[in-house]
């Protein structure tokens, strides 16, 4: 159990400005609330994907399941709706969090797309194809994080709305339901593929993160990684003691 740094004004005992540098420093990437939000989102996403795509199973495979099919279908429907509710609840809480908590507001500000991100994208691609010998320096959130975050926001909004429309089908005209069904289905494909191709790579397949990036559990990364991946943020933190209180944490004793 690592000590965590809470986000309101009370400071944890172990927080503080960096020492003489003997002890390794850890920088917080996700605080506790954010970790829980991510965890719930992740679980509900996986459940939704599995129960959702079950509908697309071809007949030949479903036939093999036999009479269990009906019970399976019932629980599939139930789980999908439960998980959907969880996801909508988490999203609603997140909006609440962004507005009312200081850390949330900081998150929102840091996530807003800027012109720098476009420059970073181009420079990074140039670095990949060996046209530059160094990758650009990122702040707390790189263009990759921002892209993924805003895609998530858009995707979740669409899925939630279309999902709710489908859930309350008797209220709407068939055309509305048809549109909701198409959007729900295709957005699901997009979201699923995006998660698999992008997110799974970022946390599982990137060579130095393999087998798994543990940030979602620990919430922190070490100093070396911070300097490598988020140097601008690192500099900002080191220059400001208030930020140090928020973002630095000692390893557990």
């Amino acid at each position: 159990m690592q000590t965590s740094n809470t986000e309101n004004t009370t400071m944890a005992l172990s927080a503080g400005p960096p020492d003489d540098g003997q002890e390794p420093l850890y920088f917080i990437r996700l605080n506790r609330s954010e970790k829980i939000q991510h965890l719930l989102l992740m679980i509900s996403f996986v459940v939704l994907v599995i129960t959702g795509f079950m509908l697309k199973l071809p007949e030949t495979i479903v036939q093999k399941i036999g009479p269990v099919g009906e019970t399976l279908f019932f629980y599939r429907s139930l789980l999908h709706r439960i998980a959907g509710t969880v996801m909508i609840a988490v999203s609603a809480y997140h909006l609440f969090y962004l507005a009312l908590y200081e850390a949330g507001r900081r998150w929102l500000v840091d996530m807003l797309p800027q012109f720098k991100d476009l420059k970073d994208l181009i420079q990074n691609l140039m670095y990949y194809v060996k046209l530059r010998d160094r990758h650009p320096e990122f702040d707390r959130f790189s263009y990759m994080h921002k892209m993924e975050y805003w895609a998530l926001v858009a995707g979740t909004t669409l899925m939630s709305l279309s999902g709710l429309l489908l859930w309350t089908e008797w209220r709407w005209s068939k055309f509305v339901l048809d549109v909701a069904a198409v959007v729900h289905g295709m957005e699901a494909v997009l979201a699923c593929l995006a998660i698999m191709v992008w997110h799974m790579y970022e946390i599982h397949l990137k060579p130095h993160k393999s087998p798994m990036d543990k940030v979602w559990l620990t919430g922190c990364i070490d100093e070396a990684e911070m300097k490598e991946e988020h140097p601008l943020h690192y500099q900002k933190i080191m220059a400001d003691s208030a930020l140090q209180h928020i973002y630095i944490v000692r390893p557990p004793r």
Partner: peptide, 14 residues
């Protein structure tokens, strides 16, 4: 990784 690949292919096909 294997699971991811299988899932990706399935969704692509769909």
């Amino acid at each position: 990784l294997g699971l991811t690949v299988v899932w990706t292919v399935m969704i692509w096909n769909l």
